[in-house]
Amino acid sequence: MTPAAASIDDFAAAPTTSSTPVLELRDIRQVYGEGEAAVHAIRGIDLEVTGGDYVAIMGPSGSGKSTLMNLLGCLDIASSGQYLLGGVDVSSLDDRALAKVRNEQIGFVFQSFNLIPRMTALSNVELPLIYGGVKRAERRQLAREALELVGLADRVNHLPQALSGGQQQRVAIARALVTSPTIVLADEPTGNLDSESTDDVLGILDSLSRAGRTIVVITHENNVGDHAARVLSIRDGLLVADRRNRPLPTVEVAA
């Protein structure tokens, strides 16, 4: 990572008292389909994530990791159970309020990047700010800083197809953190990347964590899980283990 003018602290979280959970799941269940063909992807999960924590979710393929992550990111709505994000029950929100939550509180990083083709890296990063109603000049500035932070200052005007997988994922991370969301969710962010790009991406997540941001990352690679402070294991839609590697990350106070 090249040092950049922008500092990770620009995107630091507002200080949260570690006792209040930023997100809280109560008996969350997700069922796809109906009757005989119903798939119980999540079968009752209770979970609390404290502000500033760095959580990894691990488990075999098909265990329900992505399903859980989509619920956390408000990309999907649970069949039953309660999901409180910053103390607010998400299932009670309408389209407009949900959009606001996705825009302001959540930064989502997908395994497949999900950048909009035919839009430059800068425009892609600007997008959540547009929906957040940020003025053009300020938006530009913030997007540039976010791209600098992920080491892509020299790629701002490139289209996604002109970037490597690792670079595309870094653009996606810049897009996820540009709004300074409450939590950053990453669903196998390194799943499509080689080891070098994986290190880049993990480095960024680590520094975000050090800056106090709450991070939840899905992985089935152990070395990725080792970066996290807390590791959750999922099997068949149930939480089977909850292990803490190290204490809650402490915020490095900027000078």
Partner: peptide, 12 residues
């Protein structure tokens, strides 16, 4: 889908 995930409302 991407735009909605980033916080676009239906009307936008």
């Amino acid at each position: 889908g991407i735009r909605k995930a980033l916080g676009a409302t239906r009307s936008a």
